[in-house]
Amino acid sequence: MDKPANIEIYNELKRRIVEIEYKPGQLISEKQLIEEFGVSRTPVREALLKLSQNGLVDMIPRVGTYVTQVDLNEVKYAYEVKRNLEGLAAELAAQRAGEDDIEELYEIIMRFPQYDLVKDYKKCIKDDQKFHQITRKASRNPILIQTLEELNTKTARFLQYIQYVLDDYNWFHESLKEIAEAIKDRNPKAARIAAEKHTQKFLEQMSRNFFR
């Protein structure tokens, strides 16, 4: 079944905001969106309202709709919460993941050696996010998945905004492998510890460079 127009528009606008195609502070024209997507005002308005609820746009009456600024404190808090919840997701994934989920994790791990870590920083970020998205999906817990997706939107947008380049590729690659192997081995405790360590190191790196 096709997704409703407002959901498709929401997903596309969210992608543009997270990937910084729409820059912080940029005005979003409802009229242009209506023309671009070939829809009435209602689905565009519904998509923008959902983006507003998720903190990605500010809708100012009689003024316009603007992409929100990146809030460093909000990103820091998101990482702090993600540390434990990503660990829980990996723990549950080790118990519930299907073979297709595990195969997808290993496909991502295999791609990283092909990347130029400077030129391909966007691909690195997207594949890291995809890895954790698969892990969350494999948890088979819809509340956990939704919560982490909302947190991930904040952190992914931040990494794209600062054009984050991995400063320790070997650790990063081995860290993802450690999570995947624990899930494949059906070892919930090891999966949780590996995922928490992975997120904690990101938080430490961000704290040294950006957070107070």
Rank of each mutant, 00 (worst) to 15 (best):
E86K: 09
E30Y: 12
R208W: 01
I17M: 03
T153Y: 10
G64C: 06
R15V: 00
G55E: 10
R212W: 08
K197S: 01
Q160M: 13
T199V: 15
N141Q: 02
E74A: 13
N170W: 08
D58H: 07
Q129L: 09
Y169A: 04
L151M: 12
L72V: 10
H132G: 04
E21L: 11
R83P: 02
M1I: 07
L144W: 10
E35D: 13
L72S: 11
I109N: 15
I162C: 02
K184Y: 14
P43T: 05
G98D: 11
V75A: 09
E196M: 14
Q53Y: 07
S40D: 14
Y115H: 06
T199G: 00
I143H: 13
D2L: 05
Q129M: 14
N11P: 01
T135N: 05
I109M: 03
I134E: 07
R96Y: 14
G38A: 11
D71L: 07
K177S: 13
R83H: 08
A190F: 10
F210W: 12
P113G: 13
R16P: 06
A191P: 01
L159Q: 03
Y79K: 04
K184I: 10
E204L: 06
F210T: 00
L148Y: 05
G98P: 06
S175L: 02
K76F: 04
F211T: 04
V44N: 00
I28P: 04
D127P: 05
W171C: 06
Y169P: 05
T42L: 14
E174V: 00
D167K: 13
L27M: 13
D120L: 06
F158K: 06
F37P: 01
Q26V: 00
V118K: 12
A5W: 12
R96P: 03
L148A: 03
R186F: 13
A194G: 10
L72G: 01
V18T: 13
K154M: 09
S40L: 03
Y106Q: 03
K154A: 03
F210N: 06
S175W: 07
I179W: 08
